[in-house]
């Protein structure tokens, strides 16, 4: 089943072009236009500007990548296809897990594509990938579960798309990806901890800086959010089958 859903989602060429192509273009554009402002020549930052925006935009487009799961779920469970699936002895839970699993896999591959582009073409220093890749993966899972939970709560792909679009537009701003944030205790907490993207960003940049305690603690919180979403999904999936 996972193979089928993976193949099916991989056929959405336009979606992949958007989720890989746009962040790649934006990263290249931001790097070209703003690098000298945020990182004047000769000045060394703990983490280079290009690396920061690469991580930031990779995480931002993981949010939009949540549609990989909920679009497929919507097409299967909020259409006439539901009758055919529910008439079969297959467990709806198994189908949902396969759909989310393939969504996670594809979104992760898209993230890798963005990171590879930045690393190879723009020569970004992505540091200790063995530490950061698992965090990217956890972030992918959280985003896919979040999108799916929104779909199952709203029971409308259109609503889920709108919510994710708004969420994906606002959250990167609160992390300080598009423009510098004013200094202050609340803003610091907001930008580092108050959203799954902020947590993932803090964890990845922490791992890159060698600050393992920050990386591990924020990753743990992110993982707890993932588990909580998984628990929330159980009654929602049961409702889907009823």
């Amino acid at each position: 089943m996972l193979k089928f859903y993976f193949t099916r989602s991989m056929r959405e060429i336009v979606g992949h072009l958007i989720l890989i192509g746009i962040p790649v273009v934006i990263i290249a554009f931001f790097n070209f236009v703003f690098r000298d402002i945020f990182q004047p020549p000769g000045q060394l930052l703990p983490i280079p500007y290009l690396t920061v925006i690469t991580v930031g935009f990779a995480l931002t487009f993981q949010i939009y990548g949540a549609s990989l799961s909920f679009e497929v779920l919507g097409a299967d469970f909020f259409s006439s296809m539901r009758d055919r699936l529910m008439a079969s002895p297959a467990e709806p839970r198994g189908l949902v897990v396969a759909i989310i699993g393939s969504g996670c896999l594809i979104s992760f591959l898209q993230t890798l594509a963005v990171l590879l582009f930045s690393s190879i073409v723009l020569e970004a220093d992505l540091g200790s990938l063995h530490l950061t890749i698992p965090i990217f993966m956890i972030s992918v899972i959280v985003n896919q579960l979040l999108g799916t939970a929104i779909l199952l709560l709203s029971r409308s792909t259109k609503v889920a798309n709108s919510v994710i679009t708004i969420y994906g537009s606002i959250v990167p701003m609160t992390v300080g990806l598009y423009f510098p944030l004013p200094d202050g205790a609340f803003v610091r907490v907001l930008s580092r901890y108050l959203s799954p993207m902020a947590l993932a960003n803090t964890a990845i940049l922490g791992a890159m800086e060698g600050n393992l305690s920050v990386a591990l603690s924020t990753t743990a919180v992110l993982a707890v959010i993932g588990i909580a979403l998984f628990v929330v999904m159980r009654p929602l999936v049961r409702r889907l089958a009823s």
């Binding site: 089943m1 089928f4 193949t7 099916r8 056929r11 006439s80 296809m81 009758d83 055919r84 699936l85 079969s88 002895p89 297959a90």
Partner: peptide
């Protein structure tokens, strides 16, 4: 209720798999 973006074989294998 078939997946038009997939081949007939993939459709048949998928629905057979459900059973």
């Amino acid at each position: 209720t078939i997946y038009e973006e997939m081949s007939a074989r993939a459709n048949l294998e998928f629905f057979g798999g459900l059973y």
